[in-house]
Amino acid sequence: MKAFTTLTGIAAPMPMANVDTDKIIPGRFLKTIQRTGLGKHLFANMRYEDDGAEKPDFVLNQEPYRKAEILVAYENFGCGSSREHAPWALLDFGIRCVIAPDFADIFHNNSFKNGVLPVKLPREICEQLMEDARLGPNSRITVDLERQVVVRPNGEEIPFTIDPFRRHLLLNGLDDIGQTMQHAPSIDGFEAKQRAAQPWLYDAAL
């Protein structure tokens, strides 16, 4: 996983609540067996006509947002299906940070695991950032994970909070499986105890 430290980039405005994962990446694109290459399908239903032509009024089809690295949206971003293809598609498009008042749980989790940073900020602040994002070429926002601040185009700094463990993993680009494997002895111990107390959990293999 690529580490996330500081990002300065174009922020695209998406003034919608409940942007679900079907919107982010419709079901018909889940048939891949790889993590990469989904960027072209990001927001496919909003982004393209049925014949594949771009819809000119969709934000990511406009300059400079074609190169957006940050997305600003409203409540409950990423709700719906658990598909990890949603952060994969965002990442493959080039978006590494989503700012919203809150996020659906699974999407929130999945984002961290793929180096996409979800930043939670109150609605009023998201509204201000939405205005910033509408500034076209001047919509560059900085997200500094080390200092835990979002820097608006006018220089104003907005602090945000984040789980320290997640921050640590993200800053260092660490894989959590390797981390957990360090606990293998406790896992062995747990299994031995559980097997004694509830043997049926261990002898029901198909």
Partner: peptide, 29 residues
């Protein structure tokens, strides 16, 4: 996500993303 269905039995059942699928396959946790 609809793993929540199994909660009807009085289990703690929830949906996970693909990285977590990998995590469970490798560590059972």
């Amino acid at each position: 996500s609809h793993t929540s269905t199994h909660g009807a039995l009085g289990a703690l059942a929830f949906g996970i993303g693909t990285s977590e699928v990998e995590h469970v396959l490798a560590t059972q946790t």
